[in-house]
């Protein structure tokens, strides 16, 4: 499985806001276990989708010079459920960006319905950092694989 929890970017206003779409389908294995007979998209994966949208927004502001790591989620609230067939739109707004990292405010909506909102903080890690080698690749918000969502649908 590829750890890509957004399907496509809809909008990227550099340094301001990004929007991405995620279509939920019964082809996703975990929905058969979460829960049997009652498929609901796990909140943790919505958070991941918001982090990927917000992480690319922050990374792009610095021309992807830094490795962006999800550092902390100071706030997250889930308002309702997402089920197969739903189209989730993640909107991330950059509220703080600096050398050490940055913060985004995100929402997840299905149509007019607000599903979740979160504040997510990222830290930057540079390859020169002595702790660089110790970091698990999975912590990275973007890799070249994830970046492909920005090109989906482009010729």
């Amino acid at each position: 499985m590829r750890w890509i929890w957004i399907d496509r970017f809809l909008e990227l206003q550099s340094g301001v806001q990004a929007r991405a779409v995620k279509n939920v389908t019964m082809a996703e294995e975990h929905l058969h276990d979460h829960y049997p007979g009652f498929p609901v998209m796990p909140g943790s994966l919505m958070l991941e989708g918001m982090a990927q949208t917000g992480g690319i927004l922050l990374g792009e502001k610095n021309q992807f010079k830094h490795i962006v790591i999800l550092a902390k989620v100071p706030n997250i609230t889930f308002h309702s459920e997402v089920v197969p067939g739903d189209q989730v739109i993640y909107t991330a707004k950059l509220v703080d960006a600096r050398d050490e990292g940055g913060t985004v405010e995100c929402t997840a909506t299905v149509g007019e319905r607000l599903v979740a909102e979160a504040e997510i903080m990222f830290a930057h890690l540079d390859q020169s950092d002595p702790t660089f080698g110790a970091i698990d690749q999975k912590n990275f918000v973007f890799s070249m694989n994830l970046m492909s969502v920005m090109d989906v649908g482009r010729v």
Partner: peptide, 12 residues
């Protein structure tokens, strides 16, 4: 990581 967060918020 909270120390970084605290600094961000204090600045703001």
């Amino acid at each position: 990581i909270d120390f970084l967060d605290i600094v961000f918020r204090l600045e703001k």
